[in-house]
Design a protein around this nucleic acid. Structure first.
Length: 417
RNA sequence: GCGGAAUUGGUGAAGUGGUUAACACGCCGGAUUGUGGCUCCGGUAUGCAUGAGUUCGAUCCUCAUAUUUCGCCCCA
């Protein structure tokens, strides 16, 4: 037997219904916010991710799916959505009309070679939003609110937005230096992972799960003391806007984000009861320029669809997502089966949800199936009536049975469902 | 990359180093010769993830591999 690759999954059943429901909500939401869909390739030149996500980040160093195509070009399955969108904005010169913001959203599969665990797969789905050509915190607030409101509207009402400011390049660098200087005398008292982080990514030490109660980390220099005047103003304005928008947020100076391109305001969507991160984002004001485009400020976030499905499974009223059909057509012999597919098509083309027997099932089985589908009406074909031009219909709620003229059956059902 | 737990029909699962692998749900058939949902009766894994090993004998013990799952790292 051939099995699915590790870390992949077959979306089906209840999960598939929730997935469809989420996508409907996304489409509605993005239409109201006037964002345009963008779909970029699932694989890109490997260089794109090395230059955007960061040469040293784990995502690029050990988690990408890399391959050479038949022309010997290095390709990478996308590990995240932003890089491809930025590449497309640059390549298609979407910034041609400099007066407007470019507002885009995407929704697709991403690939990271990781050890699977709860809410984490090697092939996974992200919905994301990116806005280019405005540095105004008003746009940060709009983008944050999209994710927050979408989650709420889906039925996930226990979300808080954790926000922080990383500042611009210079303040970020100054802070990192101050942090390293502060930690140097204590380095041997930290956990093994933190010793590694000290060299690779010192900011990560801030959100270490092991050392978080350590007094050393409690007295660490505060990033807010190192922000430039402009960064501080942007962060303050964002907080004010979020308050005005009635968004439940909290400041969390430990949020540093994993991708190198983030700067200024960053945030994560976190569930308040179990602390699951459903998504996150931030500003990346220098990424477009770094990838060869103009100096375009930008901001965006991504939500993990699988994690949303997991959350929703605990909350959603499953009966709302069950298959409920209008009509089940029962048949036994060939003549009846012939009629059943014709009638089924007529009903379906009139927006009546219809199912029919297409196997040699006993009438008893067909009744059971109709019930399991919650059919409102049963059409019980029999040759004798068919020859007289009549069709047998049974109301499955009242158990009332009647014979309707063949030519009026569609109208009759439309009038009674 | 590191660590823990698991893997038995369509599903949920019990179980044992030795003849036919419980039970339940589901499904199929019959009682009911074309009108069900209740009830009763019968059927439903030639096999216990895969491959080696130990053994007279392995679903059970050992090892390896795969997959699942839960953490760490990292991230959504």
């Amino acid at each position: 037997m051939i099995t699915k690759p590790k870390g992949t999954y077959d979306l089906m059943g209840l999960d598939a219904k929730i997935y469809t429901y989420i996508n409907h909500e996304i489409e509605n939401f993005m239409a109201n916010y006037n964002y345009d869909l963008i779909r970029t390739p699932i694989f890109e030149a490997s260089e794109l991710y090395h230059r955007s996500v960061g040469e040293t980040s784990d995502i690029v160093t050990k988690e990408t799916y890399d391959f050479k195509d038949r022309g010997d070009r290095s390709m990478t399955l996308r590990p995240e959505g932003t890089a491809g969108v930025v590449r497309s904005v640059i390549e298609n010169k979407l910034y041609g009309n400099k007066n407007d913001c470019i507002k885009l959203y995407y929704n697709g599969t991403m690939y990271r070679y990781e050890r699977p665990q709860s809410g984490r797969n090697r092939e996974f789905t992200q919905f994301g939003v990116e806005v280019f050509n405005s540095a105004d915190p008003m746009i940060d607030a709009e983008v944050i609110s999209i994710g927050y409101n979408l989650l709420n509207s889906l039925g996930i009402d226990n979300v808080t937005v954790a926000i922080n400011s990383l500042g611009d390049k210079i303040s970020r660098k100054n802070y990192t230096e101050a942090l390293v200087k502060y930690l140097t005398p204590y380095i041997n008292e930290l956990c093994d992972d933190c010793k590694k982080r000290f060299n690779s990514n010192p900011l990560r030490i801030l959100d270490c799960k092991i050392d978080k109660n350590n007094d050393i980390l409690k007295n660490v220099p505060k990033i807010s003391d190192y922000l430039s005047k402009e960064s501080k103003e942007r962060f303050d304005k964002l907080k004010m806007l979020l308050t005005n928008l009635d968004i439940d947020y909290e400041i969390d100076e430990k949020i540093v984000r994993g991708l190198d391109y983030y700067d200024e305001n960053v945030w994560e969507y976190i569930t308040t009861d179990n602390g699951i991160t459903l998504g996150g984002g931030g500003r990346y004001n220098s990424l477009v320029e770094n990838l060869g485009g103009p100096n375009l400020p930008a901001v965006g976030f991504a939500l993990g669809i699988e994690r949303i499905i997991l959350e929703l499974k605990n909350k959603i009223n499953i009966s709302n997502l069950q298959n409920n059909i209008d009509v089940y057509i029962m048949s036994v012999n060939e003549e009846e089966k012939m009629q059943s597919i014709i009638l089924a098509q007529n009903l379906r083309l009139n927006n009546v949800i219809t199912e029919m027997n297409s196997n040699n099932l006993s009438l008893k089985s067909q009744f059971k199936i109709a019930d399991s589908l919650n059919a409102k009406f049963l059409v019980i074909l029999n040759s004798e009536d068919l020859n007289k031009g009549l069709i047998n219909v049974k109301d499955n709620a009242t158990k009332e049975e009647m014979k309707i003229d063949e030519s009026e059956i569609v109208d009759w059902i439309l009038g009674n469902i």
